[in-house]
Computed example of a mutant assay.
Amino acid sequence: MSAPNHGRLQASIDATPSGLDTYLVTSFGEPFGSNGFGNRMKKWCREAGLPEECTAHGLRKAGATIAAENGATEHPLMAMFGWASARQAAVYTRKANRARLAADAMHLLIPRRPQGGS
């Protein structure tokens, strides 16, 4: 299965010399496998002096969080991240919905002034 690329990502891919449908490739010019990419990403993050939690998985989680906070629902998240079940997507939508609902309801903590009266 393949998903469309974001316009900025597609522009980066189009500008790469590899001619592949990916812009991060191994030293042999081949696409990374999932484990190989994760290990290489971790190495790049360590070399850059980033914290331990900066990993490929962390970036994926950040993307899902941002999309959910921007209004993505479970099925779009499933399509974007390749999840077969809504269960994983629900982790992100529940948290985003909770924050949105809390922000929308904060005014309810202020007592209403009585109407009319003297």
Rank of each mutant, 00 (worst) to 15 (best):
M1Y: 07
S2N: 05
S2E: 05
A3N: 03
N5T: 12
N5Y: 13
H6R: 07
H6W: 13
G7K: 02
G7P: 09
R8H: 13
R8C: 11
Q10E: 13
Q10A: 11
S12E: 11
I13A: 01
D14F: 08
A15L: 02
A15M: 05
T16R: 10
P17C: 08
G19D: 04
L20Y: 00
D21V: 10
T22M: 10
T22Y: 14
T22C: 13
T26F: 05
E30A: 09
P31M: 02
P31D: 03
P31F: 05
F32I: 05
G33L: 06
G33E: 12
G33K: 08
S34C: 07
S34T: 14
S34Y: 03
S34P: 12
S34W: 07
S34H: 12
N35A: 04
G36N: 04
G36L: 08
F37P: 01
G38A: 09
G38L: 03
N39H: 11
R40V: 09
K42F: 04
K42A: 09
K43A: 09
K43F: 04
K43E: 08
W44Q: 07
C45P: 00
R46G: 02
E47H: 01
A48R: 10
A48F: 01
G49R: 08
L50Y: 06
P51G: 11
E53V: 04
C54Q: 03
T55S: 07
A56L: 04
G58M: 06
L59S: 10
L59F: 15
L59M: 14
A62F: 15
G63F: 00
A64R: 02
A64E: 01
T65E: 11
I66V: 15
A67I: 00
A68G: 07
A68F: 03
E69S: 13
N70D: 14
N70A: 08
G71T: 11
G71Y: 07
A72S: 14
A72P: 00
T73D: 14
E74M: 12
H75A: 09
H75R: 14
H75E: 13
P76M: 09
L77D: 00
M78G: 10
A79D: 07
F81V: 04
F81N: 00
F81K: 00
F81D: 02
G82Q: 05
W83K: 08
A84N: 04
R87P: 03
Q88E: 14
A89I: 01
A89N: 08
A89Q: 02
A90H: 08
A90S: 09
A90I: 06
A90G: 06
V91Y: 06
Y92I: 03
T93H: 00
T93A: 05
R94C: 05
K95E: 14
K95L: 09
K95T: 14
K95M: 11
N97M: 06
R98G: 02
R98I: 11
A99Q: 12
R100I: 07
L101H: 10
A102C: 07
A102I: 15
A102D: 14
A103C: 07
D104G: 06
A105R: 15
M106D: 13
M106Y: 11
H107Q: 04
H107E: 08
H107W: 14
H107N: 04
H107G: 15
L108P: 01
L109H: 10
L109N: 10
L109W: 09
I110Y: 02
I110K: 11
P111R: 10
P111S: 03
P111T: 06
P111C: 05
P111N: 04
R113P: 01
R113D: 09
G116T: 13
S118P: 06
